[in-house]
Amino acid sequence: MNHVFCAMLLIGMLAAVMGGDLSGAQTALFSGGGEAVSFCLSMAGAYAFFGGLLGVLRESGVTDALARGMRKPLARLFCFERGEEAALDDICVNLAADLLGMGGAATPAGLRAMRTMAAAGGDTGRLSDAMGLFLVLNMCSVQMLPTTMIAIRAQHGSKSPADIVLPTLLATLASGLTGIALCKFFASRSKMHD
């Protein structure tokens, strides 16, 4: 992100100098932060509402129930090496929290799962098939409820802010399934080379 940020500012300043619009660039630099703060304030109500709603779901045990339900299919999907199956519980919690859009609860469980699997392989720094699949699933983000996106549309006067839920589900499904298929493909290819 460091490189991206520096590159964006550098390119912007260069373009400002070449285009001769220095005062416009200056206004943009000062207004950007202010826009961010007022944007966050306008989103605060929705964040509190969705946070509260997800809090009720979590404390009612919905996340745990979902994690339990995913346990069997996930145990089949992941080809664990010896000792790696100890991470299965954390994997289930991570993916269930991800599905419900609770990023805050997903990350600690996900990192724990990665550490457990690494330790099972003797901490050699090698990426096992199960670790690769878990990593790719997290990089694809399987999400059922895009709360931030619903909120931002509602805030900006959309007539039906939630009508992106179904397309988002389809898109996340497409990327998730592609990710799984690619992992299985690469894993079987590396086995043939052994």
Partner: peptide
């Protein structure tokens, strides 16, 4: 998230204003 968003919006505002 707010400080990160400040940085991001500053950068995108600059790129938009300068035509990049």
């Amino acid at each position: 998230m707010t400080p990160y968003l400040c940085a991001a919006l500053t950068a995108t505002a600059l790129l938009r204003q300068t035509g990049v």
